[in-house]
Design a protein around this nucleic acid. Structure first.
Lengths: 261, 261
DNA sequence: CCATCTTTGTGCACGCGTTCACAAAGACAT
DNA sequence: ATGTCTTTGTGAACGCGTGCACAAAGATGG
């Protein structure tokens, strides 16, 4: 296995736990809202409520950054906004490229949440020649042929992939080869990247499936004896015509143990 | 007769860890791809590689579902597809409503990943009267006034919120009041919901900020690394270097104690 | 200056998730 | 049938994240 172990190595050499890093943007958003309302200070309790977390967790998170609070008073909002922004690296400008300007890509390009915080869409890239030159979100879409040049000229280190699944790995490889070291992947596929490259993925379908699981569980609790798998899915499910229930006792709706040959 | 498969459900199906549930869709996708290529069986090692996880983790995940593998052979692809689909509740139809048909909402409506797995977009809803009646993704957008009626008539229990942040909580409240018990939130805000309602959030801005953090760290470390010697970079084959990230002490002398008045 | 009150920062314990390592189970060849 | 080989399923150890509970720190009032 040459390219085997490529998952995020949990590089936590700088003491801040990954879970904390993931919450910092949440705190930052709540703090920004307070700042816009000119609130001078905020207690861990108030801020935690605004961010939807436990106050002890919030205090511990902040403790990784340093002692920025004042006992008996709370945290200075402006100061904390600055500290978190700096810690997250948002005090600098991050040019990003977006590859794959389909429905989703175009929506992302129009999404204001990017530009609002240090991120700047440097280029929109698509492989379809018909897209080249079209204007999306006020920018001209460029052809994928120029990907390497665009990344180099703009000093891009963060790429967003919104292509179909089939093209994602190829695009990813080119991005990485061109110098991109962080990738936000919207394509429903697992990307493999070399060490040192971070990948985060956003998968709409997966989120829905997780919700469906819990939804089913909730439904099953109220009506245990309700219908089982009504009509099956394709293929194998249809084969399960006769239960021939072996053992598998399933008070909660467990099903036939029909192992296809 | 009996094929001698006397597997015991040692663990209750209730007890599936959340982390495992979150990975099931990943396995399902990999298995579906194998199924389409008519691959009959797959080992935990192969499937784990395809899903981008550790093989031991995959086996443990599957063990929560039951003993569906055959030692010495692996897992029957079709059978496993069915079992995971059933566990996730994808063998039934899930009507969903999408509220907020802006750029993002429209893109989501067009996204094929929903319909592909048991999810059916029952209605597109927007508060803007100018949107009502417009056709998006082959459906007519309906006005928010009819939200409760739509949910009731279609038996919707899953809602997707893609409104601006300011409207999200209000929409959420109405969805919940109308009977929705699972919400996928794309609005950059913290939703508060009563017990029994599941909320998952997808926040594009947050994902980018997390990437920026790691990106900044990489940029800062490469400078230190150059002067100090390789740290954290994976060695050739043997573990020559001893991580022991215990002795990290303040190389963080860059904290300007500028407390704004 | 002292007492009191508020809120932070954190030591500690606990539970969950991950990973290792191996015995058990079954396929397959002889 | 017996032995060998492959792969699963899982016990156990470990590390991370979370939340409790409290001492320390500083503000505030008298």
């Amino acid at each position: 296995m040459a390219t085997g172990r490529t998952h995020r190595p949990a590089t936590r050499s700088r003491g801040i736990p990954e879970a904390t890093v993931a919450r910092l943007p949440l705190y930052l958003r709540a703090l920004t809202a307070l700042s816009e309302r000119s609130v001078p200070t905020v207690s861990s309790e108030e801020l935690a409520a605004a961010a939807g977390v436990n106050s002890a967790k919030l205090r511990k998170d902040f403790s990784y950054l340093g002692s920025y609070g004042t006992r008996g008073v709370g945290y200075d909002v402006e100061y904390l906004v600055y500290q978190i922004s700096r810690e997250l690296g948002l005090t600098q400008d991050w040019p990003i490229v977006m590859v794959g300007i389909g429905n989703l890509g175009a929506a992302l390009a129009n999404y204001g949440g990017f530009a609002s915080r240090g991120f700047r869409v440097a280029a929109l890239i698509d492989a379809d020649p018909a897209m080249s030159g079209k204007t999306v979100a006020g920018m001209q879409v460029q052809h994928a042929d120029d990907l390497e040049k665009i990344i180099d000229e703009n000093g891009v280190s963060i790429g967003v992939i919104a292509t179909p699944a089939g093209a994602a790995q190829q695009v990813c490889d080119r991005l990485v080869a061109a110098g991109v070291t962080s990738i936000l992947n919207f394509a429903p596929t697992v990307l493999s990247v070399p060490d040192g490259v971070d990948v985060r993925k956003v998968d709409l379908s997966i989120e829905l499936q997780i919700l469906a699981f819990h939804e089913q569980r909730k439904a099953g609790e109220s009506a245990i004896e309700a219908a089982e798998g009504a009509v099956g899915v394709e293929g194998p499910a249809a084969k399960v015509t006769k239960p021939t229930a072996n053992d598998r006792k399933g008070p909660d709706g467990d099903v036939p143990a029909v192992m296809p040959a």
